[in-house]
């Protein structure tokens, strides 16, 4: 279930990965690397300026059994929120 932008803005991520400036598949690889350092139930926030990432990461989360929470659009980049489920 995706969260509203207001709910997302109030989230405190356990880990923030800044993948801005890297291109596909850089942000996806960054998420894969980072998720193991987030506690189960915790939240990973990925910053990406690659337009593919906000569509890649929900698919990745589904495949890996994590929960995609939503995206906040900022000028020039996206903030993508994933909850680690296992």
């Amino acid at each position: 279930m995706s969260m509203s932008p207001d709910e997302l803005k109030n989230l405190k991520a356990d880990k923030v990965v800044d993948a801005r400036g890297t291109s596909c598949p850089g942000p996806l690889l960054a998420a894969k690397r980072a998720i193991s350092s987030v506690p189960v139930g915790g939240i990973l926030e990925v910053l990406s300026s690659d337009p593919g990432t906000k569509r890649d990461l929900p698919l990745w989360a589904k495949k890996m059994g994590h929960e995609f929470l939503g995206v906040i659009e900022e000028p020039g980049y996206s903030r993508i929120f994933i909850k680690r489920k296992k």
């Binding site: 596909c24 598949p25 996806l28 690889l29 998420a31 894969k32 698919l59 990745w60 495949k63 890996m64």
Partner: peptide
């Protein structure tokens, strides 16, 4: 190489 990285990311 990009497809290989993508596939690895997607498990």
């Amino acid at each position: 190489a990009i497809l290989a990285s993508g596939a690895v990311s997607m498990d």
